[in-house]
């Protein structure tokens, strides 16, 4: 890997960790409501630099983020790890199909993140399928709403980046 690439990944990972830290400061009225702002960075990385880059920054974000919040190797860590891997893989698969824009990719990411988390909860912690199925629709519904929010943020950021690079090319 070239030095330039490494620097870029480090910067993106830092952005993702900052987003993760920022969203924890927002008080949420409903339990299970997590905005998943870090997914904005993951998705932009996926679109611009591909699967490996997106996977790398997701892993860095989850590991460093959990160390910062003191949940390393705890239940929230296992949940975000499985959720993060599911979501990156699903978004990559959907990206390859080429019919979805950032909004659809973000929705798929949110959906699979939640499915991965529910699966992790079932496999590792609680073998009570009924109670998980009761909570699943609420969690997936909230995930869809935050997915819309993040998807629009990705569209906005991509447009902004495009404008910026156009400006750079015009001045050269």
């Amino acid at each position: 890997m070239q030095q330039r690439e490494k620097n870029r990944l480090a910067l993106l990972a830092a952005c993702a960790i900052a987003m993760y830290g920022f969203e924890r400061l927002i008080p949420t009225p409903i339990p299970w409501l997590r905005f998943g702002f870090a997914n904005i960075i993951t998705l932009i990385t996926l679109i611009l630099y591909g699967f490996n880059a997106a996977l790398t920054i997701t892993l860095i974000r989850i590991i460093i983020g959990s160390m910062l919040t003191g949940t390393f190797l705890g239940p929230p860590f296992v949940m975000s790890l499985v959720g993060g891997l599911f979501s990156v893989a699903a978004m990559w698969a959907a990206f390859r199909v080429r019919v979805f824009g950032p909004l659809g990719l973000s929705l798929i990411g949110a959906l699979f993140h939640n499915l991965g988390q529910l699966l992790a909860v079932y496999a590792v912690f609680i073998q009570n399928l009924r109670s998980i199925l009761i909570l699943a629709p609420v969690i997936l519904f909230i995930g869809t709403l935050t997915g819309v929010l993040n998807g629009l943020a990705v569209i906005f950021t991509m447009e902004h980046l495009k404008k910026m690079s156009d400006n750079v090319q015009n001045t050269q």
Partner: peptide, 25 residues
């Protein structure tokens, strides 16, 4: 303008997810 940047499949997926999860809630 943001909404104009979404594809048809994006919108179908959104409506589908809202419908399925909303109905199951």
């Amino acid at each position: 303008e943001l909404i104009d940047r979404t594809t048809l499949f994006d919108r179908i997926l959104l409506v589908f997810l809202l419908f399925v999860t909303g109905a199951s809630i």
